Amino acid sequence: MPIDADKALSAEPRSTEIAWDPKDVQLYHLGIGAGTTPPEWPAGSSAATDPGELRYTLESRLHTLPSFATVAGSGSPFTQRNREAEGGGATAGGLSAPGIEVDLAAVLHGGQSITLHRPIPVHGTATQTTRIAAVYDKGKAAVIVLRSEAADADGPLWTSDTRIFVKGEGGFGGERGPSHRLELPDRAPDHTLLRPVREDQALLYRLSGDRNPLHADPEFAALAGFDRPILHGLCSYGITLKALVDTLLNGEVARVRTYSTRFAGVVFPGETLRVRAWRQRGRIQAAVTAVEREDAPVLADTVVEHH
Rank of each mutant, 00 (worst) to 15 (best):
T125I: 01
Q128D: 06
T130H: 06
T130Q: 05
R131V: 11
A133L: 03
A133I: 04
Y136P: 02
Y136A: 01
D137C: 04
D137N: 09
D137I: 04
G139S: 08
G139V: 11
G139N: 12
K140H: 07
K140L: 03
V143L: 15
V145A: 11
L146Y: 09
L146A: 14
R147T: 13
R147Q: 14
R147N: 05
S148L: 08
A150V: 05
A151W: 02
A151L: 08
A151R: 10
D152Y: 04
D152H: 03
D152A: 05
A153K: 12
W158H: 12
S160Q: 15
T162R: 11
T162W: 09
T162L: 06
R163H: 14
R163S: 13
I164A: 11
F165N: 06
V166W: 06
K167Y: 03
G168Y: 06
G168L: 07
G171I: 08
G171L: 04
F172C: 07
G173H: 02
E175A: 15
R176D: 10
R176P: 00
P178G: 04
S179C: 00
H180N: 12
R181K: 14
E183K: 15
E183D: 15
L184P: 00
D186L: 09
R187S: 10
H191G: 00
T192N: 03
L194W: 04
L194F: 13
L194Q: 13
R195G: 00
R195Q: 13
P196L: 10
V197S: 11
R198I: 02
E199P: 15
D200C: 07
A202S: 14
A202C: 06
A202M: 08
Y205W: 03
R206F: 01
L207A: 12
G209Q: 09
R211F: 11
N212V: 07
N212P: 10
N212E: 09
N212F: 07
P213V: 08
D217V: 14
P218H: 09
P218C: 08
F220G: 11
A221Y: 00
A221H: 02
A221L: 04
A221R: 07
A222Q: 14
A224F: 04
P229M: 11
C235W: 00
C235V: 05
S236M: 10
Y237Q: 09
Y237D: 06
G238P: 06
G238Y: 01
G238S: 00
I239K: 01
I239C: 04
T240V: 09
L241T: 06
